[in-house]
Amino acid sequence: MLDFIQQTIGGIALGCVYGLIALGFVLIYKATEVVNFAQGELMMLGAFLSFTFIATLGLNYWLGFALAVVCMAVLGSTMERLVIRPILGYPQFSIVMATIGLGLVVRSLAGMLWGTDDLRIETPFTGGVFKLGGLVIAADSLSIIVATLLLCAVLYWFFRYTKIGIAMQATSQNMLAAYYMGIPVKRIFSLIWAISAMVACIAGVLLAPITLIHANIGFLGLKAFPAAVLGGFSSIPGALVGGIIIGVVETLSGFYLPEGFKDVAAYVVLLVALMVMPQGLFGSRALKKV
């Protein structure tokens, strides 16, 4: 039983990272109806940048973290400007492929710049543990859970109540109409990419102590798809819940099931979920108007 709880907590922490990456998908999808297959690569880039600031340049952890987030915001909006904006309004297939291309470029550039070794950053939480009865919880895991919850709350509030958040939702529904209503559509798109890149960066930095940093952590982004789909793809709390479900399922199947199941668990859950409820846990089904 203790094992089970211990594993579940580990799963929740992992799930929160998935949730954070999924959050990045959801943000961009909510505002621009683009699915960003490069989200995992953005996370990786954020982790590498924080490594450069913290380990290479020897800055304070929090300062390095903040700098990385700011850099990622700039990079995120630059990518939007260069790659996505010229093809806005294209069929989704084209845009999805463009983001896949973007992911390839980012990953190989990062591999060239930072090499292919595993990198590590020291965090204030490294090695810290909380003991609760027989349970041992790493401070790293706990930091992820807390940060994720906070971030979700902030973003939820942002989309629900701020003027710009509502403008973003309007833009996604109908770009032309939003434009006529005086919403600066182009700036909104850059902004949403910046925010999404920032979220990815936070996910990357939080994840760094657990998985180490290397060019392939971007592939974790693929694991975050099931999370986003499970959560309905356009719901912020949904992404979090979906992420946690995937994280827990994956960890538990790694612990209890034979080898091999761990890697596909997320996708099996995804396929089953798509069959049973294609709109996800928090999605809504709309009828097409004719």
């Binding site: 790659v83 492929m97 291309g101 390839l104 470029v105 990953r107 190989s108 591999g111 060239m112 292919t116």
Partner: peptide, 14 residues
């Protein structure tokens, strides 16, 4: 450089 091919692939797609 390792990864040159995927860099080129990415650029070609875009």
């Amino acid at each position: 450089a390792p990864g040159l091919k995927s860099l080129i692939f990415g650029l070609i797609i875009i």
